[in-house]
Write a protein that binds this DNA or RNA. Structure first.
Length: 158
DNA sequence: GCCAACGTTGGC
DNA sequence: GCCAACGTTGGC
């Protein structure tokens, strides 16, 4: 069964366009350092799951497109063992890695990226009032219900 | 840049 | 195991 997700990225750091421009349009989603987000990736994500791509911490926060999980499952995030990386975690044991990641692949984006399905629109839509994004905004990887996913896709014209 | 709402750390 | 202090997220 396909699972539905929402994943956040700051467009100044890594935008949906960056993903689209990547070779093979797929990139490792490294740097997640939150246990709840990690648990979703490590325990539940699998290839083919679909993802609402959310731009945070920017002028027009909102959902800008769709991606999908392209790695077979989650695997250890190598940046945790790289002392030069800003995601380095000296407490993580290579024999029992603390942090996991998945690869995600570009699928589609809204026609005009300056007009995403914006956060105010999401918050004011009764069909989306139960989204984790609305109820508890700060988690970078969230689970989304199929009905919510379909509704957002419709709003986005995808 | 401010700050609310969290999560994490570490002393005890 | 409690909790104060600190760090982070992210909208505004």
């Amino acid at each position: 069964m396909t699972n539905y997700w929402l994943m956040k990225s700051e467009p100044d750091v890594f935008s949906l366009d960056d993903l689209k421009k990547a070779p093979k349009k797929t990139e490792p989603w490294d740097g997640v350092r939150n246990y709840q987000a990690r648990n979703f990736m490590r325990d539940q994500m699998k290839k083919g799951d679909v993802v609402l791509f959310y731009h945070s911490n920017c002028k027009e926060p909102g959902i800008v497109g769709v991606a999908e999980i392209s790695s077979k499952a989650a695997y250890a995030d190598p940046t945790q063992f790289d002392s030069k990386s800003k995601y380095h975690d000296p407490k993580s044991d290579p024999d029992n890695p603390r942090w996991y990641m998945v690869d995600i692949e570009f699928v589609s984006k809204v026609a005009d990226v300056d007009q995403p399905v914006g956060l105010p629109e999401i918050k004011s839509d009764p069909k989306l009032a139960d989204m984790e994004l609305v109820r508890y905004g700060r988690l970078s990887v969230q689970s989304v219900k199929k009905a919510e996913f379909d509704h957002v896709k419709k709003l986005a014209g995808l």
